[in-house]
Amino acid sequence: MQKTKSFLKLNVSSFERYLNFEDHRVYYYAIEEKITPDNCIETCKALIEGIAKTILGQLDLKSAEVRSRFSNHELIALESTMSKMLGNGEDFQVLYRQAILVLAAFHHSCEEELMQALGKDFFKFFAKLRNRRGDISHGREAPKPEKSSKNLAEMIVQITDIIAFHMLEVLSLIDFEKDKAENEDFTIAESFFVKEPEQLETISESERNVRDFNDFLDEQYPYEGKIRFSMALYQQYKDDYKIQFKEFMDGKEILTDSDE
């Protein structure tokens, strides 16, 4: 796993927001120790799965801007995967496929078609092999009736290293926190559009909060003319608008806590 480990070491600053993947060090240790070929193969699967979950964990599907990056079909699949991640887990191949979808949606360098094609058959074989021969996940009688060779394990390690490296390289180019800041501006801009009642029923919670804040401002400061006070404040003094919005939300949280 030298390619992946070297990349992480040389790009520490790019991964500070992802905790430098310190919790994944146990995977690299287990792979390099090669306690048994099947243990090594099983750990390769766990590493890719862990990276995929980390990528998906950065996604805010409540954001209108984020949702706009995906088709309706993709959103339904992503929401299902995210839900399963919080419950009984999601299939390994699905986690990988969805993680590649997310990387491609946020950065052109992902090469989605290649990565999906590469992962489709490789990880299908990977999962079957792990289920048949894995030392850890399912437990095995002694002696094991079927064992993998060292050469097979080494080949899988090399392929895993290439895939993990590419996933991490693309992830290092994406700043989800910056994207969230841009999402806030997108949501605020959306909040000034007049929408039909049925449209308002489907808006995100974030947009609903901004609309409530706009109504609060407009009631507090009636503004003569065609433009609303809230819109004028945002267009001319964006920082002041955001500071007051934060204070508004903090006040709502205090009221909610006192009601409880």
Rank of each mutant, 00 (worst) to 15 (best):
I76T: 14
H24I: 10
Y237W: 11
E190D: 09
A105D: 09
R67P: 02
D23S: 14
D259V: 15
S149Y: 12
N11T: 05
I174P: 01
F165E: 08
A164M: 10
I136A: 12
L19G: 06
R228F: 08
E33Q: 11
E196N: 02
N72A: 12
M85R: 04
G50E: 01
A30E: 10
E79Y: 04
L200M: 12
D250N: 10
A189T: 06
I35R: 15
F176Y: 11
E16Y: 13
L19N: 14
E90R: 04
N131Y: 08
T160F: 03
T256N: 13
I76P: 00
A127F: 06
K62P: 00
E112P: 02
E198L: 15
S258I: 15
N20G: 14
V102D: 05
V194F: 12
R208C: 01
P37C: 10
E42D: 05
V194K: 04
G134L: 01
E224S: 13
P222Y: 14
E90T: 05
V26G: 08
L217Y: 09
K242V: 08
R130A: 01
S68Y: 11
K238M: 03
L56S: 02
K226T: 11
E154F: 11
G87V: 05
R208F: 09
H138I: 09
S191N: 07
G89I: 01
I76G: 00
G139S: 13
A142W: 11
F248M: 06
D240M: 09
F176M: 05
Q116H: 13
E16F: 14
T36D: 05
R130M: 05
E42F: 08
I156P: 05
H166Q: 06
E111D: 12
I227H: 07
I159S: 10
T187C: 07
D175W: 04
Q235A: 12
L101P: 06
M249R: 09
A181T: 08
P145R: 13
K45L: 14
R211S: 02
I162F: 05
Q116V: 03
I162R: 00
E74R: 13
Y18T: 13
N72K: 10
N11K: 06
L59R: 09
G251F: 12
A232L: 09
M115S: 05
L101Q: 05
Y18E: 11
M231D: 14
I159E: 07
K3Y: 06
I51E: 04
G87D: 11
P37D: 15
K180P: 00
E253P: 00
D185I: 10
M155F: 12
Q2D: 15
R132A: 13
F126P: 00
H166L: 04
Q93L: 01
Q220G: 01
F193R: 08
I254M: 15
K120N: 02
F213S: 04
S204Y: 08
V157Q: 12
